[in-house]
Each structure stands twice: as structure tokens, then as C-alpha cells.
């Protein structure tokens, strides 16, 4: 069967199945198991209402359990076994990893990414949000800077090849160097700094995200606080740094952590730009070198990523719980 037909069939089965499940299970609950008639009508209605939330939740909870909760445990379990999966080697995979130079480079680079990308993206996002705030063509400007959000990491990598290419007739950087009489070089092979060139691609993509959210937050600041500051003689910079930024600090932190989480997952840019060569590996791309070859190692790397995400996860949950109270 052609995949297209299969796809259409899946949509029908998926959507029809969902509707059928929800409708059918509710019907079953109300008419058969706890019918709202007969001697126990009151008790039956109450019982049905106790069960119903779980009917609504079941498919989602099941899918979340299988596709996200189970893998956390499953990956950790698998990472304790060797390549074949038959021999238990305890933390052997982790020990091997830490003894490997490339892994340490990947961890170091990953920490750089986590520090630099959210900082730069948030900085540019805040800057652009503030500058475009009262601009007549601000919305067009924001929309254009937001645009890279829609572009895939693979597409973005190709786009940036037209900036970084070593050929001065393709890459803008080398064209400029050529025009200034400097020797042509491949930016992606300049050790250490090439990491920053790769990071800038992600900054380019994520700045729009930071800008949109911070721009909304800036609009939400009460006018009176700003007016009061101006009447007291604050200059525009003081208004921005002492009045506005403190009031949107919460949003800045949210933007920062959201981008941090994303940074820990992105493997596409390194994969398509350098393939991890020239000392540019980060953990997600490093994991892919083991994927399909050594599941024990691959899951061990994945679990290290999980450990890095863990603090943010706990912080997020605490925030969410605090909000609900």
C-alpha cells in the first residue's frame, strides 16, 4: 500500500478511533456500567463521574507513559548493559565515556552552548523587542526576525553555509576577507571558535522566539511605573534597566530556561555543518555516532543529557505547582 494511502487511512483510523473511543466509552459508562436509572441512580451517577476523568485521560496518559516516561527508565536500564545488551556491566559505559577524549570535548562544548546560546538569544531578543516597541514598522521588523523559527535546523545549516563557506564566491565571510586582502580560511575548521560559529546559527533561530515573548512582556508593564520614573528624572537607560527589566525578570528567566532545554536537544546543526569534526561535537550529536552501533553507549550519553536537563525540569515543576495554588 502506498504511504500516502496509508497516511489517509491512518488519519481516518486515528481520528475516528479517538472519537469512537471517547463516545463509546462514555456511552458504556453511562448506560451499561453505572446506568443513571434504577435503584442506585444517585450512587451510579457519582461513580460514573469519578471514573469519567480517567476515560478522558487514558489515551494521553498511556501515550505519555509509553513514549516519554518509560524511555527514561528504559534508557537508564539499557545503559547498564554492554553493546550486545546481554551482559550487565553496571556503570561501565559511563566510565568508558568519561575516559574518552571526544566525550569530554562534547560535554565541554555542550556547556559552552548552554551558556552562550540562551544568553545571546535572550539579549538580542530583549534588544529588538525594546527597539521595535514604538517603531511604526516594528511589526514587520519583528516578523522578519521571527521568521527563522519556521526554518528547519537542516535548512538553517544550509543557509549558513552560504555565510561560512571557504569559497570566497559562496561564503560572505570569506568574500569580505578576500576583499580586504586577507587569506581565505574555513571558519568551521578554526578550532574552538568554530563552536561559536555553529552556536550563532541557533541564536539566529531562537532570537525571534525570545523577542516575541519579551515584547509581549514589555507591553504588559504598567505605564504608571514608567511615567513615575520619567517624572523623577530617570533617563531612558535607567528606565529600561531599573524599571522595565526587573518587572519582566520572571519572563526573562522562562525564555532563558526554554532555550536552554532546546540547546540540550539540538543535534541537527552540528550534524549537518561539521559532523562533529574539528572539535565541535556536542552531546546530542555525539550520541548519534553511537546510535545503531552501540545502544549501551548511546543510552548512556542520552542519560547524561537527561541529568543535565534535570535541574531545569525540577524548577519548572515547582513553578507550575506554585502557580496552581
Amino acid at each position: 500500500m502506498s504511504p500516502v494511502l496509508q497516511g489517509i487511512l491512518t488519519i481516518i483510523i486515528g481520528v475516528g478511533g479517538c472519537v469512537g473511543y471517547f463516545y463509546g466509552s462514555n456511552l458504556l459508562l453511562d448506560k451499561v456500567i453505572f446506568p443513571a436509572r434504577g435503584a442506585n441512580i444517585g450512587r451510579n451517577i457519582n461513580r460514573a463521574n469519578q471514573v469519567r476523568p480517567w476515560l478522558f485521560l487514558f489515551p494521553a496518559v498511556f501515550a505519555l507513559g509509553v513514549y516519554l516516561a518509560y524511555p527514561v527508565v528504559g534508557s537508564f536500564y539499557r545503559s547498564l548493559f554492554d553493546r550486545s545488551g546481554a551482559n550487565f556491566i553496571g556503570l561501565g559505559n559511563y566510565v568508558d565515556l568519561f575516559n574518552e577524549g571526544t566525550f569530554r570535548v562534547a560535554v565541554f562544548n555542550n556547556l559552552l552552548w548552554v551558556l552562550v546560546v540562551p544568553a545571546l538569544a535572550t539579549f538580542f531578543g530583549l534588544l529588538i523587542a525594546q527597539l521595535t516597541d514604538r517603531l511604526r514598522w516594528g511589526n514587520i521588523a519583528k516578523s522578519l526576525i521571527f521568521m527563522p523559527m519556521a526554518i528547519s535546523f537542516v535548512g538553517a545549516s544550509l543557509i549558513w553555509r552560504f555565510v561560512y563557506s571557504a569559497n570566497p564566491d559562496i561564503g560572505i565571510i570569506n568574500a569580505l576577507r578576500d576583499a580586504m586582502g586577507l587569506a581565505v580560511l574555513d571558519p568551521l575548521q578554526v578550532q574552538f571558535w568554530n563552536n561559536f560559529f555553529l552556536m550563532f546559527i541557533l541564536v539566529w533561530i531562537q532570537t525571534g522566539f525570545a523577542m516575541v515573548i519579551l515584547s509581549a512582556a514589555l507591553r504588559g508593564i504598567p505605564e504608571e511605573t514608567i511615567e513615575a520614573a520619567i517624572i523623577d528624572g530617570a533617563n531612558p537607560f535607567q528606565v529600561f534597566f531599573k524599571i522595565k527589566v526587573p518587572q519582566i525578570m520572571g519572563t526573562i528567566v522562562v525564555v532563558w530556561t526554554t532555550i536552554t532545554i532546546l540547546v540540550l536537544k539540538v543535534f541537527d546543526i552540528v550534524y549537518t555543518m561539521t559532523g562533529g569534526n574539528f572539535g565541535t561535537h556536542i552531546l546530542p550529536s555525539y550520541m548519534m555516532t553511537y546510535m545503531f552501533r552501540d545502544d549501551g553507549r548511546a543510552t548512556a550519553v542520552a542519560f547524561v543529557i537527561m541529568l543535565l536537563v534535570l535541574p531545569v525540569m525540577i524548577w519548572n515543576i515547582r513553578q507550575a505547582r506554585a502557580e496552581m495554588r
Binding site: 476523568p53 480517567w54 524511555p71 539499557r78
Partner: peptide
């Protein structure tokens, strides 16, 4: 909109799962 025991816990779990790195899911799944 529905009240049932464990609701807060489930919401917290969803927030937590929001950030689970995909990489973890690849091999087991």
C-alpha cells in the same frame, strides 16, 4: 475542568515530561 484525586500530580508530570530530551526515547522505543 474535572475534579479528581491526583490531578495536580498529573499536571506536574506533564510539565516535567515537557522537557524530557528526545534522545532518551530513541533506543528503548
Amino acid at each position: 475542568w474535572m475534579d479528581f484525586p491526583g490531578r495536580g500530580l498529573l499536571i506536574a508530570a506533564v510539565v516535567g515530561l515537557l522537557v524530557v530530551p528526545l534522545q532518551l526515547a530513541l533506543v528503548p522505543l
